[in-house]
Amino acid sequence: MGDIKSFLHQYCQKNKKEPSFEIRPTGPKHRQRFLCEVRVAEFDYVGVGNSTNKKDAQANAARDFVSYLVRKALVNPTDVPADLGLTGGSEPSNG
């Protein structure tokens, strides 16, 4: 299984850009959650993800940003490995 964060880093490296991940804790201390925002220079979009741990919050934010790149036709959906959990909006769902 691949890593969506690595895919985002590869895309940025090819285009001479650097993603910036910002993580901050949210919620009460006894039920801690983390909010992650990812920004890439020259893009107005901010990818957002949250989870109970930092690694998953970063992966969710990267997935959100890659979804944006696919929606804007900057990345071909077939270039994103299927095992990264990114599903296209134009495909019908079975469920």
Rank of each mutant, 00 (worst) to 15 (best):
75 V>L: 11
55 K>M: 07
26 T>M: 15
42 E>H: 10
34 F>Y: 14
21 F>D: 00
78 T>F: 14
49 G>P: 01
29 K>E: 12
69 L>S: 02
14 K>Y: 10
51 S>T: 02
43 F>A: 04
9 H>M: 11
15 N>T: 04
55 K>Q: 13
31 R>W: 09
13 Q>S: 12
66 V>Q: 08
73 A>I: 06
59 A>F: 06
41 A>P: 05
51 S>N: 04
54 K>A: 04
25 P>G: 14
46 V>S: 02
67 S>F: 02
18 E>Q: 15
9 H>A: 11
55 K>C: 03
79 D>F: 01
7 F>I: 05
75 V>N: 00
10 Q>S: 09
72 K>E: 13
56 D>C: 01
89 G>D: 03
22 E>D: 12
62 A>K: 14
16 K>Q: 14
61 A>V: 08
18 E>P: 06
82 A>Q: 15
45 Y>H: 14
21 F>Y: 15
84 L>P: 03
78 T>C: 13
61 A>H: 04
86 L>K: 04
40 V>E: 13
44 D>K: 15
51 S>Y: 02
28 P>A: 03
1 M>T: 08
37 E>G: 08
79 D>M: 07
67 S>W: 03
48 V>L: 11
12 C>G: 07
75 V>I: 15
82 A>N: 11
64 D>Q: 06
74 L>R: 10
94 N>M: 04
12 C>T: 08
20 S>W: 07
3 D>R: 09
7 F>T: 05
26 T>F: 10
68 Y>W: 10
41 A>F: 07
77 P>E: 08
20 S>Q: 14
64 D>W: 06
68 Y>N: 09
46 V>F: 02
72 K>T: 13
29 K>G: 06
